[in-house]
Amino acid sequence: MTDSLKAPVAVSSDAFYFEKDKSRSILILGVGNYLMGNEGVGVHVIQEMATMKLPDNVDILDGGTGGFLLLHCFEAYKAVIFVDATLDGQKEGTISLIRPKFASDFPSALSVHDVGLKDMIEAVYLLENKPDIHLFTISINEVVPMSLELSTTVKQAIPRTIDDIIKLTKRLTAEL
């Protein structure tokens, strides 16, 4: 396999994530479809972060296109950082950070799984314990079905996004 086509690293939502108190922990959740080219950049970010040494209070999860299947994660964590692609018309590779409070606060053009993600966020706000939610988006120009490849511009946004995520986790850790 070439470097550009690495097999994904398994990062799951097994009980491991709930074996200890997560009330002072941060979950970084990459979402997207790994088989749809740039649309899967959130998952690619998580795969890259899986190779890094992260602080003990930071967990990562490849959420794929999980939607409501991810809802249980939100009750356990004090803060959740999403990473996702967006078809927002901005220059490809643009990184944005928003603080969505409701589904309507999400960009109007999140990638193809946006309906499930927006519905899930609405459900999160019905939970007794609501995490502090942050969303990093990476702008894409197209979705390429049945492709593992990222465009050069989107691929170059990954290290910058990870740097921004690490900075945010440090700030959030100080606030927990």
Rank of each mutant, 00 (worst) to 15 (best):
A85D: 08
C73P: 00
I98K: 08
L70C: 05
A76I: 06
G93V: 01
L87N: 11
Q90H: 12
L110G: 08
Q90S: 14
C73T: 02
D88Q: 10
L87W: 03
E75A: 14
G116K: 12
P107A: 07
I95P: 04
D114Y: 05
H113D: 07
H72L: 10
F106S: 04
A76Q: 14
D105H: 14
F74D: 09
F74S: 04
I95F: 03
K78R: 15
L69F: 04
A85E: 04
F68R: 00
V80L: 13
G93A: 01
A76R: 13
A103C: 08
D88H: 04
I98S: 15
C73L: 10
F106Q: 03
E92P: 05
V80P: 13
P107G: 10
S96A: 05
F82A: 08
G116D: 09
A109H: 12
K78C: 07
G67D: 02
K78A: 14
S104L: 11
T94P: 03
T94V: 04
T86D: 09
F82H: 10
K101C: 03
P100L: 10
F68W: 02
I81W: 14
L110R: 04
V112Q: 06
A76C: 07
G67L: 05
A79Q: 12
T86Q: 05
F74N: 08
V80D: 13
S111T: 14
F102E: 10
E92W: 07
I81D: 13
L110S: 01
E92R: 08
G116H: 08
G67A: 03
K91T: 15
D114V: 00
G116I: 00
D84R: 00
R99V: 11
A103P: 04
L117Y: 07
V112K: 10
G89W: 03
H72T: 12
P100H: 13
G93T: 01
I81K: 06
K91D: 12
D105Y: 10
F106W: 13
G116T: 02
D88K: 06
S111I: 05
D105V: 09
Y77F: 15
G89D: 06
V83Q: 08
P100Q: 11
H72F: 09
D114R: 05
C73R: 03
D84T: 01
D114H: 03
F74E: 02
V80N: 12
L110T: 08
Q90F: 05
L110W: 09
C73I: 00
A103M: 07
F74R: 11
V115I: 15
A103W: 06
V80F: 13
D84Y: 01
Q90M: 12
L69H: 04
F68S: 03
H113Y: 13
F106T: 05
V80I: 14
H113I: 06
Q90V: 02
C73V: 01
V112H: 09
Q90E: 15
A109T: 06
V80R: 12
P100S: 12
P100D: 12
S96D: 03
L97F: 07
L71E: 03
T86V: 15
K91G: 02
D114L: 00
V115D: 01
K91C: 03
S108E: 11
S96V: 00
A103K: 13
P107C: 09
E75M: 12
F68T: 00
S104Y: 05
T86M: 12
F82N: 10
A76H: 15
D84N: 06
K78F: 06
D105M: 10
V115S: 06
G67Y: 02
V112M: 09
I95C: 02
Q90A: 12
V83C: 14
S104T: 11
V112E: 05
